[in-house]
């Protein structure tokens, strides 16, 4: 299997609470270590990634975290301003127009404009070039919103192309759509936990990305997996120790669930599944991200 490094836009999503930001941080770090200039984007959220990597929060400006690794929290107001400036060219004109009460009112109700400018900023960075003609960022890792929100967020260009009258907005949308659907540029990584709902959501997300957004699922990550530890014989031997038996049984059940979830993902996604074991660390910081990164080596670099 080819690694993610062949693609430029890595979209990470899954159900809420499955560890999307953790996986996005690990992938971005690996890309940077591979010498690729990497930008990791969070979308209007309480920033996690820079904190995981033990750096100050990046905020809405693209900020260098460490060698080859930049981060940004894409926020609507700032993205709208950048977009507005790009279209209108002049700061003064932007202020007159966008700080007009009436205009602000209208902008709020223009369907999907907010999502469009958020996605627009990310796509802008994807196409940005250095003076010497190389890409400013080789890799962009998008820590996308959770399932439902991710689908509507990423479908915005498609929806707009279909519904909005010809004009600047639909032209922007068209450009973005072309990049999103290009399998040589964009790849999705779906994150799940070894539990029923997160696995089902990953499958739903896969189907929606394929049918509505036309983004291919590159791989799935089964996070917080529990490896087999107790055999049937162990469990039997523990029957006389009810408290310990309960603990062992729970561990055993989660291990079985891990196997089940992995099989279900593999069968339905037709994509490789990478398991990341549950980590037991007192605090969740850089160490944790480095460990997760170790388990995703083949996902990024490809199988040898």
């Amino acid at each position: 299997m080819a690694g993610l490094l062949d693609k430029r836009l890595w979209v990470v999503s899954g159900k809420g609470g499955v560890g999307k930001s953790t996986v996005a941080a690990a992938l971005a770090l690996r890309s940077a270590r591979a010498g690729r200039r990497t930008l990791v984007c969070e979308v209007n959220t309480q920033e996690r990634i820079s904190r995981f990597l033990e750096h100050p929060a990046a905020g809405p400006e693209v900020t260098l975290l460490e060698e080859n690794l930049w981060a940004v929290d894409v926020r609507p107001q700032e993205a709208m301003r950048e977009y507005g400036l790009m279209v209108l060219r002049f700061e003064a004109l932007y202020k007159t127009v966008f700080e007009n009460r009436l205009v602000r009112y209208f902008l709020r109700f223009i369907p999907s404009l907010q999502e469009l400018v958020l996605l627009g900023k990310i796509m802008y960075h994807l196409q940005e070039k250095l003076p010497d003609g190389r890409w400013r960022f080789d890799t962009i890792v998008l820590d996308a919103p959770a399932t439902g929100h991710a689908i509507s967020f990423l479908s915005v260009p498609h929806v707009l192309v279909q519904t909005v009258p010809q004009g600047p907005m639909s032209r922007e949308a068209q450009k973005m759509r072309d990049l999103l659907v290009d399998p040589s540029v964009t790849a999705a990584v779906l994150v799940a936990l070894p539990e029923e709902m997160p696995v089902n959501e990953a499958l739903e997300l896969h189907a929606a990305l394929k049918d509505k957004v036309h983004i291919r699922t590159h791989a799935a990550v089964l996070n917080q997996s529990i490896p087999e530890r107790f055999t049937e014989a162990d469990l039997e031997a523990l029957v006389g120790h009810p408290e310990l038996h309960r603990v062992a049984q729970a561990n055993h059940d989660r291990a079985s669930l891990t196997v089940l979830a992995g099989t279900k993902l593999e069968r339905n996604l037709h994509a490789p599944v990478f398991t990341v074991p549950r980590l037991y660390l007192p605090t969740f910081g850089r160490d944790a991200i480095e460990q997760v990164m170790g388990h995703l080596e083949a996902l990024v670099m490809g199988e040898k």
Binding site: T96, V103, Q166
Partner: peptide, 16 residues
């Protein structure tokens, strides 16, 4: 108004 003209540059007139 020039505000509305500029705004329509942004969204397209039809949309407004």
């Amino acid at each position: 108004g020039y505000v509305l003209r500029a705004l329509s540059k942004f969204t397209g007139t039809e949309m407004l």
